[in-house]
Design a protein around this nucleic acid. Structure first.
Length: 691
DNA sequence: GTCACAGAAATTTTT
DNA sequence: TTTCTGTGAC
């Protein structure tokens, strides 16, 4: 290969494999990048080389898993390009702006706004987040009388899971039910009707859910009439975290580049953790078959962790039942072994983490280079209380998002309706906020909406129920203001302020904690300034909701506070910290009790455990509380001790440092102490008081 | 029809 | 702890 001078200058200290990847030609390329092997570095170099070779950035499509990783990659590419002669910071940021990058969903949205009209889609479509989609299914479920008592029809959330799995795996409903939801098989006919109605309703109201963004995109690139238009727009397509793509995403890639020309995918089958939403590890394993002539480049030198940590993580993943075998190695030979911390309960677990956090900070590792990881968002609740009590600021990724809170959705419903008055999901949400208007009236009023061309002629003449006499005119006035031309409606912030003023008295009655909620509404008003248009704000908030900061504030990326990170393992993918604490490395939590049923989910839990362990650079603490708070759900074994995770068998514990629990559980375990008297005797003793 | 309340049931991970 | 469903008062 004839490498020109400026391109060579970019390659700096890449290892031979990474260098090959960066300089690879336009044939399909699969980079199998183990954890911490410089995947982002390699991808950034490949991008920089493409640009240096003269590919215009607007002809490069970069698909990432989160918006965070997209911007991290852009940043890295930017600093690489800065080393090239003839490029100024201004011209570099101009180049980067032209790059097509983002998640599959975000890029899909952008393409559909541009080309959707070719397949009959209005450019002003609204996007449903998970909650919206559930609500719509819930409404239709009632309308179709599927919830008739007697037959137990799946809940709206389950309905959405089933629907989504069909779309993302491209499998039939009966197949999905048989394979994944054997208990819901009788609901087959009801679900068929429900999904049919769901599609029709979305169609009429110009609504797309997350799955539709991929589905419509796939149709667009799959149809001979429209495909060439989009294919000819891109010379190179790069996909990060390829192990977590699904069948539908593969079809999109095939549509974009049928022979894999200019296609680069990067991933690690050992880190596949999204099967629950339809991702299939087959995409990465079968890449050479899907795109014949593909080159496979494995990266095995780890630049992240110390060898003692890798010794354990390599063995953890070697216990997996299938997958490429690879052994990561590091030049960082020295370091401490992972630490298994046994503790009595969640309280002791939180205490240990807090002590260690401070000790590490004293030793030179600030909070922002440490992270606490966990399987499920609620596993960190007790620790969060302690952190708040001690005044440690943290940022939490995963779990409930800011925009999923009911009051935020209420407020956004007004903006969404103003943007797309056909959106009767938002219409009903707004209407039901008004006293005296419940589900029936709301449905009735929205139906009137469909018969006329504008909402004002439908609602202007309605005589509202008596309880709504006060609020109805205010409601109409607010909508009139929001739907006025931009110069009259005012800035986004102004619009939100008007909505907030309308909602404030209603929320005071509706919520006990209205003070906290109204602070959230002010937060929303404050972040409105970041967006240039209303439609942009709505799309961005649904595709990438802000994570909430402790105390309800919305995290701002520019803040350079010493913020500690709390994150679900899923949200920690691709990231690294010097010190990592994994909470509740115990049976029932990791693996989750919901994964115990089938072997495939259990293997996914193992990979999840592996992902958690490989986030650590220098130190790793695995916490095993022997007792956790269990809800009433738990049955007979709630008095017993919880076992360490099965992913750390005894022979592996020999490779760890072990810190025993401070309190011996046996001493306090009531279950071990036989009863000394009966309640009859207790009552007898108490009875003496008034005898 | 709406609203408030009570009891039962479900309860992960995310775009 | 939230969400769904049924009941009874207004």
């Amino acid at each position: 290969m004839n490498v020109s001078e400026p391109v060579t200058a970019l390659l700096g200290n890449l290892n031979p494999q990474q260098r090959k990847a960066a300089l690879h030609d336009d044939s399909p390329l699969l980079i199998v990048a183990g954890a911490g092997t410089g995947k982002t570095t390699t991808l950034a170099h490949r991008l920089a080389v493409l640009i240096a070779r003269g590919v215009p950035p607007r002809r490069i499509l970069l698909l990432t898993f989160t918006r965070r990783s997209a911007s991290e990659l852009q940043r890295r590419v930017g600093s690489l390009l800065a080393g090239l002669p003839g490029l100024t910071p201004a011209s570099i940021s101009q180049l980067l702006r032209e790059l097509w990058s983002g998640t599959f969903h975000a890029v899909g949205t952008r393409l559909l706004r541009q080309y959707g009209h070719l397949i009959g889609l209005a450019p002003g479509f609204s996007i449903l987040d998970r909650g919206d989609a559930e609500d719509l299914l819930g409404m239709l479920r009632t309308e179709l009388n599927l919830a008739e008592s007697g037959s137990r029809f799946p809940l709206k959330g389950t309905c959405l899971d089933i629907y989504s799995r069909c779309v993302n795996t491209q499998q039939s409903l009966s197949h999905v039910l048989a394979e994944q939801y054997p208990a819901q098989q009788e609901a087959l006919d009801g679900l068929k009707r429900l999904f049919q109605a769901y599609s029709e309703r979305k169609e009429v109201q110009q609504l797309l859910d997350y799955d539709d963004l991929l589905l419509f995109w796939q149709i667009l690139v799959g149809d001979p009439a429209t495909a060439p238009l989009i294919q000819s727009q891109f010379d190179n397509v790069l996909v990060d975290e390829y192990q977590d793509t699904n069948a539908l995403q593969l079809e999109i890639l095939r549509g974009l580049t049928p022979a894999g020309h200019g296609l680069t995918v990067v991933g690690d089958d050992a880190q596949a953790i999204y099967a629950f939403r339809g991702a299939t590890v087959r995409n990465i394993l079968d890449f050479p078959q899907h795109f014949p002539g593909a080159t496979l480049l494995p990266l095995e030198q780890n630049y992240r962790s110390t060898q003692p940590l890798l010794d354990v993580t390599n063995r953890v993943i070697a216990l997996a039942t299938e997958g490429h075998r690879k052994t990561l190695w590091s030049e960082r030979k020295e370091g401490s072994r992972p630490v298994l911390v046994q503790c009595l309960d969640e309280g002791e677990q939180a205490d240990f983490v807090l002590e260690q956090l401070f000790a590490r900070r004293e030793a030179g590792t600030p909070f922002q280079r440490q992270a606490v990881l966990f399987r499920a968002a609620h596993h960190s609740l007790m620790l969060e209380l302690e952190l708040v009590r001690r005044g440690i600021r943290f940022r939490k990724f995963g779990g409930l998002r800011f925009t999923e809170a009911a009051h935020i959705k209420d407020m956004l419903a007004f903006l969404r309706f103003a943007e797309n008055p056909r959106d009767s999901l938002s219409a009903q949400r707004m209407l039901q906020l008004i006293p005296g208007i419940g589900p029936k009236k709301a449905q009735q009023f929205t139906e009137q909406l469909w018969e006329t061309s504008d909402w004002l002629s439908a609602w202007g003449s309605i005589s509202p129920p008596r309880a709504a006499t006060l609020h109805w005119p205010l409601f109409l006035a607010l909508l009139r203001l929001l739907t006025a031309p931009p110069e009259k409606a005012g800035s986004l912030g102004t619009q939100l302020r008007h909505i907030r003023q309308f909602l404030a008295p209603l929320f005071e009655k509706k919520y006990d904690d209205h003070a906290a909620r109204s602070r959230d509404l002010e937060q929303l008003e404050a972040i409105a300034g970041r967006f240039d248009t209303r439609s942009r704000m709505l799309s961005d908030l649904t595709l990438d909701p802000p994570t909430s900061l402790q105390g309800g504030a919305v995290a701002d990326d520019d803040e350079d506070d010493d913020l500690l990170t709390l994150s679900t393992i899923h949200s920690a993918k691709g990231l690294e910290w010097d010190v990592v604490y994994l909470l509740q490395a115990t049976e029932g939590s990791l693996p989750s009790e919901f994964a115990l049923r089938d072997p495939a989910s259990l293997e996914e839990e193992r990979r999840l455990f592996y992902v958690a362990l490989t986030r650590a650079r220098d130190a790793l603490y695995l916490l095993c509380p022997q007792r956790v708070y269990l809800s009433s759900r738990s049955r007979t074994d709630n008095h017993g001790l919880i076992a360490r995770t099965r992913f750390l068998p005894d022979e592996l514990v020999l490779e760890l440092d072990v810190i025993p629990a401070r309190t011996e559980p046996g001493l306090q375990d009531q279950a071990d102490v036989p009863p000394v008297m009966s309640t009859t005797e207790v009552r007898g003793r108490i009875g003496r008081l008034w005898d």
